[in-house]
């Protein structure tokens, strides 16, 4: 008998015991997809575009999300309504490239773009993973209720003239020199 044999046996027994113990331990895995685990609210999954409290599109097509995106998967084209509101004419996210880093959400000055805890986006072809604006825009405000960019910004839109924003004073009458 080798000098080391007793130590080997102890080790072997130890491994067997561990395996045996786990056979009766409580299960950590769930049978996905029949059973779904609850995900934390800040989980970074499928991206949506949200609306402001007035039900209008929040996105003002500032291009910041597309600029910050490390894999360059956001493409949009800005345009504007007659009342002065900027919005994206087209907005496209290629989810086959998106790495769900959440940079776009951080960059967005209007809280429009948000990542949701939905990650189930399996498709058979690449094309179907390219989401257009209709697929991205949701009806609600997402996780940041209450914020309305145009109430703070200086530009005029219908229903909010210059000087009517939060923290604004009425506009200066530049036709007079009286104080």
């Amino acid at each position: 008998m080798n000098k080391q044999t007793p130590t080997l046996l102890v080790r072997l027994w130890h491994s067997l015991w561990t395996t045996l113990r786990h056979a009766w331990a409580k299960r950590e895995t769930v049978s996905y997809p029949e059973i779904k685990r609850p995900l934390p609210g800040r989980w970074r999954g499928r991206i949506v575009l949200t609306r402001d409290p007035d039900g209008e599109e929040r996105c003002v097509a500032c291009y910041l999300c597309s600029a910050v995106c490390p894999v360059d998967c956001i493409h949009l084209q800005a345009t504007q309504r007659d009342d002065g509101r900027r919005y994206p004419e087209t907005f496209r996210i290629d989810f086959s490239r998106c790495i769900f880093c959440g940079f776009c959400e951080e960059a967005c000055p209007t809280l429009a773009i948000q990542l949701t805890p939905d990650f189930e986006m399996c498709e058979r072809s690449h094309d179907e993973l390219v989401y257009e604006k209709e697929q991205l825009l949701i009806e609600g405000q997402g996780k940041h209720p209450g914020y309305n960019f145009y109430r703070h910004a200086g530009v005029a839109i219908s229903g909010k003239a210059i000087g009517e924003g939060i923290g604004d004073t009425p506009p200066v009458d530049h036709d007079t020199n009286l104080p």
């Binding site: 003002v60 500032c62 910041l64 000055p109 209007t110 960019f149 910004a153 200086g154």
Partner: peptide
């Protein structure tokens, strides 16, 4: 007095 509107300002960038 700056109006907080860089996102809709064409000069941005």
């Amino acid at each position: 007095n700056h109006p907080h509107d860089c996102p809709v300002c064409d000069e941005g960038g």
